[in-house]
């Protein structure tokens, strides 16, 4: 069996500095403790999924990695140096595509690229559009695209600046299941080609098991990491294989306890997961 279950924080060989470090981080909004004493290292080039029920602080962690929020206690490090604010080395892909409505698809994709030299800019845009299968739609405006096309354009815009880290905040949550499936596939083959460090926030166990090398399962009240699960399976993954089933069951078990905890607090006897 090649499924290893670990508890955080993961120990790494000293020689290999983690790409991102979340070191003893706490953050609250008013009286509400969003995350409490979270520690997690994210390795160079790995695809890490943060999974958990709503309110577990997974988005808060992503916001702190991005530099939009500052931790109250603890530190966020990139290559060993503290994160001081947002920047193009850690590009964020939001749940909404957030394309700029006044620019066409090509100009949106080229948003982070320098204006000159012009030929290089146009060539890069063309390459990226081909990569996300939007080359025929370069001159359309964002409002003329479907939801999946918009998110693909946003992904191309992010990849254009060649970020070291991609931070993805439930980027496919608003899409229909078929489109999500296609985008999973595309993201997978893109990621296999470029091996960027990816932190992917999701509440979908399927999405996490399909895409991630490691899955951090989060707990609520207070938000913290319950368990980190390695997914040491080749891509693309066969959803009917016993290994995948085993990992899904393991995550579900962790989450079921969380949901029961929430249900007890809310006074419901039955909480079907």
């Amino acid at each position: 069996m090649n499924v290893a279950l670990q508890t955080p924080p993961v120990a790494l060989p000293k020689a290999e500095l983690p790409k991102l470090s979340i070191a003893g981080v706490s953050k609250s909004f008013g009286d509400l403790a969003a995350v409490t004493d979270v520690s997690l290292d994210i390795r160079r080039g790995e695809f890490l999924a943060l999974v958990g029920p709503s309110g577990c602080g997974k988005t808060t962690i992503l916001q702190m990695l991005a530099g939009f929020e500052k931790p109250e206690r603890g530190q966020i490090l990139i290559d060993g140096r503290p994160v001081t604010g947002p920047g193009p080395d850690r590009l964020v892909l939001f749940q909404e595509p957030a394309l700029l409505p006044w620019l066409n698809v090509a100009d949106n994709v080229g948003f982070g690229l320098p204006a000159k030299p012009r030929e290089l800019r146009e060539e890069t845009i063309h390459l990226l559009l081909r990569m996300v299968h939007l080359e025929k739609f370069a001159h359309l405006m964002p409002h003329q695209l479907s939801g999946g096309m918009k998110q693909r354009a946003a992904l191309a815009r992010a990849l254009a600046v060649d970020p070291q880290v991609l931070l993805m905040d439930e980027p496919f949550a608003a899409l229909d299941p078929q489109t999500r499936e296609i985008l999973h596939h595309e993201l997978q083959s893109l990621w296999l080609g470029i091996h960027k460090t990816v932190v992917f926030v999701t509440h979908s166990v399927e999405e996490a098991v399909r895409l991630a090398d490691r899955i951090a399962v989060m707990a609520t009240q207070p938000g913290r990491i319950r368990r980190v699960i390695d997914v040491d399976l080749p891509h693309p993954r066969d959803f009917n294989s016993p290994e995948v089933a085993e990992i899904r069951a393991a995550i579900r078990d962790e989450l079921r306890e969380e949901l029961q905890k929430i249900a007890r607090k809310e006074g419901n006897d039955e909480y079907v997961f």
Binding site: F68, P86, P88, F94, F111
Partner: peptide, 10 residues
């Protein structure tokens, strides 16, 4: 959100 797009692109 549009402001955040600008921020993440530095």
């Amino acid at each position: 959100l549009l402001g955040r797009v600008g921020q993440t692109f530095g």
